[in-house]
Amino acid sequence: MSRMEVYSPEGLRMDGRRWNELRQFSCQTNTHPNASDGSSYVRQGNTVVLCLVKGPMDTNRATSTTRASADGPVLNINVSYPPFAGIERKKRSKNERRLSELSIVLERCFLKTIVLKNYARTVIEVNLTILSFDGGLLAACCNSITLALIDAGISLYDYVSAVSVGIYSETALLDLNSLEESDLSFVTVGVVGDSDKLNLIMCEDRLPLDKLERLINLGIQGCHQLRKLMNDTVKEVGVELLSKRQ
């Protein structure tokens, strides 16, 4: 099999996108109204993530034993990665270090975005299920948690939107799929609201320092686009809710 071209000289990527184009993004909120207090379904290209939020609730009602903290809520994030989600069917242990790191990173991300003082001595449980994986895992998880928290009515300062950005020689590519991810160095960037302030930045590959700035800038733009898309969905749901009430 001939090697697929990551970025053709004509400026097209494997799946026909330009360098600064996101994959198709669609999201829904309140997908599981009976099972949870807030839920969301996010699809970024072929990556599909489902997020269920339970809470805020009393500490002794939570499934895991946690100690309440007086300053804010305890955020419990569980990521489950079922065997069918990846390209290759593979069972992953629940305690895989990579997944526990992912959930810790997500926890820390959202703790500063939730209005802490409203939820002292409570637990918020977030359960993420990755239905299908095609790159941009952290980003998709981040976006789905934001939407699910909004659906649960938990007060946030602003949206957290995240996207992955890779570098192909001199060109920065937005929102990688898993084929591109395996070939390129990439950075995941998370932005709060429509500011230039970064909440999250994660890079696990080698990457020249002078290219980092370009990647971050493209990432921020991508995040702003995503935020707009999410905002549209949330507004639509809001309008619908209001119309039903009358």
Binding site: V105, F110, T113, L198, I201, M202, C203, R206, L212, I216
Partner: peptide, 19 residues
């Protein structure tokens, strides 16, 4: 001058230029 790993997980939001 190669970045091997970079992680800022949550916490304060910091402007990209400061980073």
């Amino acid at each position: 001058q190669e970045v091997c790993q970079l992680l800022k997980s949550g916490g304060l939001n910091i402007d990209a230029s400061l980073i």
